[in-house]
Amino acid sequence: MAKYLLLKHYRHSGPKPVPGTEAMMDQWTPEEITEHIDYMRRFADKLTESGEYVSGDALSPEGTFVRYDGEGRPPVTDGPFAETKDLIAGWMIIDVESQERAYEAAAELSAAPGQGGRPIYEWLEVRPFLADPPATAE
């Protein structure tokens, strides 16, 4: 088994959205939003049942950049940046048999209904976890 991160973005500098799916969630109807949320929940339930779900979380769109500023000094903060190109919305971590299965799961998540109940065709970023070296490596 291998772990994969399925990354959802509020916006990203990856591939262009599929035409007709650009509308943000706050442009949908309340019913469409409910349908979408329901689909996500059912998807997580299904992966739990198949023994592939690890965890998932959502992030606030508001964030701040922070760094060290030398001994004894308070941290330096910068932002929030309204125009940041890559803004992560949340993630799901899955533990699956193969990369193929990870892609299949990501595609199913990307098919969540949006405006008019049509799939949103959302681009999800799939990132494999770096695992521990196998005990038999040497």
């Binding site: 969630m25 706050d26 442009q27 949908w28 109807t29 309340p30 469409e32 949320i37 959502a58």
Partner: peptide, 16 residues
């Protein structure tokens, strides 16, 4: 997350 969804829906409802 529940509150966020709720508030987005409020905006959506008014827009509609």
């Amino acid at each position: 997350a529940a509150e966020r969804t709720h508030l987005i829906k409020q905006a959506a409802r008014l827009r509609l």
